[in-house]
Design a protein around this nucleic acid. Structure first.
Lengths: 342, 342
DNA sequence: CTGAAAGCGCTTACAG
DNA sequence: CTGAAAGCGCTTACAG
């Protein structure tokens, strides 16, 4: 193994032309079966692999997808949102299943990631996984779409945006959570999470919450909504603030599991029992949820399916097929934070 | 933006040759400052990006690293070991920092991953992150090393292997854990984790445990070691088995946080209090650890540093520089599962 | 079924 | 400082 074998080496050994080698290796029906087998045997023996740079250059495609994880710059610790990590896993798998490679990159929202990957022919398309506040980069996104970049983003579809979006149905998840709490007999349900348009996901969950309340004829109490971002400490803060209000409540719908866990800590410190005094539902079903105390009932986003759809849609777009935004349904995972199963 | 601009388009507009464009874009000192600026301005205007396939083909390098995550096939759910996820994050960052791209791939140990990436010129080198039992693929690894593949693996250095290894100092971590338990006055310390050579990491931790015991003059009780793999349920099983033995113990050193958490569940179910009755130390410091109840004291592996060293070493190897195996020190994170801080 | 040839878009000696 | 030319290793019309 001194130097890498090329198709010419194989051609020489097999006594055929380099073109034939290329055809044989790609299983072209044009080439004689016997020749093909001979060529393939020699290729295997020499441990030959097609040079991707050469073939990509020639075919002008890369069989590679780029995944851009846009992180919240505030959180500069090497800690990644566990939900994203789970998405990363499923996207990697789905990409491999389709015979593509995956280039992964972490980006600050601020940086000039726009199209670097596709423009330089490193990837055929881009998947963008970003945090909450899409408004910041909506402009960039639209510009990209206008340039015919192949791009799919994870998240709620934006009204004015023409970018292909795949996301979970946050409103439906919100409905599910609140319906569950209602079914457990709770009537004073607090919502922990930013409900402004800067967090479209959380906002949609809150909207679902309101919808379920309305459907059940239970009045919404605005005072029971407290802002929080998706961290344990923010959840702790929000719950403490809620408690300080002295406004009675018997349940919490937390916009994320991390918030729920922080909230549970705050409740425990004040001697409030979960689920006896306050029932609680989270959102995401991150691994920690099942280890919480008590194990957390939560809304699960199907990351496996999401990854598959993301990759599938992007590939369709690349091939010029019709694609449309999709909303993936969520499901409720019942554990013990809302009391005994019904 | 109809079609992608090439260096020829720029040459045409700038009124220079394509060679000069190439030089100007690479900031070659050979080219006149004024020309360079003009060319770069036009490139920017046309949104030009160097075609990676072409330049890689020409230079025979890819500025890309491949990360192979070899998963335990038993665990076919989309759940990835949280520790690996954390490594993935830090490797991605370290790679980007060095100006390289990262190709990520999940592999079954069984599959023929060997060198696909480097052989096909998609990557300049490979980082292998695998689960416990390296013996299964040691042969493959040695073959690769013999082929001059640029490769670095995460894990304990193997005696007979010539493969570059970077890993945490598991023995030292074991010493740390047991010393801490000893300092808390515990004398009957159980060890939960496979201590055979099939799990070299766990085995090294167990060896560290023994070493600390010996240094303190506390006799090792072999009966207090129970096998477990790194899952919550296996930890639960192991602790249950330990309890069933009726051999008294006042502390547990779990070979991983997941095992520790499962063990805590088993203890709780039997009404045994942590840390009053039994103190417990885990290993890894995965995110769940701090949310456990009580928060888990554990041995932290510095994944940020590990990722950096992994990438750095691989790059050195690629450049033909001297490299050697490295052991990264661990540290103890004290929380509440061993009682009050001293 | 097979071969000779062009060309993907760069980088880099070589000559001036 | 600049240009003409070769060549990285493939794929694929084109001709036979």
């Amino acid at each position: 193994m001194t130097t890498k074998a090329t198709s010419i080496d194989i051609a020489y050994r097999a006594g055929v032309s380099q073109s034939t080698v290329s055809r044989a290796l790609r299983n072209s029906p044009l080439v004689n079966e016997e020749t093909r087998l001979r060529v393939q045997a020699i290729a295997k023996e020499l441990n030959y692999k097609v040079d991707k740079n050469a073939s990509n250059l020639r075919t002008q495609s890369s069989l590679t997808l780029a995944l851009l994880l846009c992180e919240d710059p505030t959180n500069d610790d090497s800690l990644i949102n566990p939900f994203f990590l789970s998405m990363l896993g499923s996207i990697t798998r789905a990409t491999a299943q389709q015979g593509y490679d995956l280039l992964v990159s972490f980006q600050q929202l601020s940086s000039d990631w726009h199209a670097d990957y596709e423009d330089s022919n490193k990837a055929d398309g881009i998947i963008l996984l970003g945090y909450g506040d899409y408004m910041d980069y909506e402009e960039k996104l639209n510009k990209l779409a206008a340039q015919n970049t192949h791009l799919v983003i994870w998240g709620p579809a934006q009204h004015k945006s023409s970018v292909l979006s795949i996301g979970c149905d946050n409103r439906q998840g919100g409905v599910l959570a609140t319906e569950h709490l209602l079914a457990k007999g709770r009537r004073h349900i607090a919502f922990l999470g930013d409900a402004s348009s800067h967090s479209p996901e959380f906002q949609a969950r809150y909207l679902g919450h309101q919808q379920a309340l309305k459907a059940a004829g239970v009045p919404l109490q605005k005072g029971l909504q407290v802002d929080a971002i998706s961290t344990e400490s923010s959840g702790f803060e929000a719950a403490s603030q809620l408690l300080a209000q002295k406004r009675p409540f018997d349940a919490i719908f937390a916009a994320s599991d991390l918030i729920a866990i922080g909230a549970m800590r705050a409740l425990k410190e004040q001697g409030i029992k979960v689920p006896e005094d306050v029932a609680i539902v989270g959102y995401d079903d991150i691994p920690v949820a099942s280890f919480a105390n008590p194990p957390l009932t939560t809304i699960k986003q199907n990351t496996k399916l999401a990854g598959e759809i993301l990759v599938e849609s992007l590939l369709k777009q690349i091939k010029g097929q019709e694609v449309s935004n999709q909303l993936i349904p969520t499901s409720l995972i019942e554990r013990e934070s809302c009391g005994k199963k019904l």
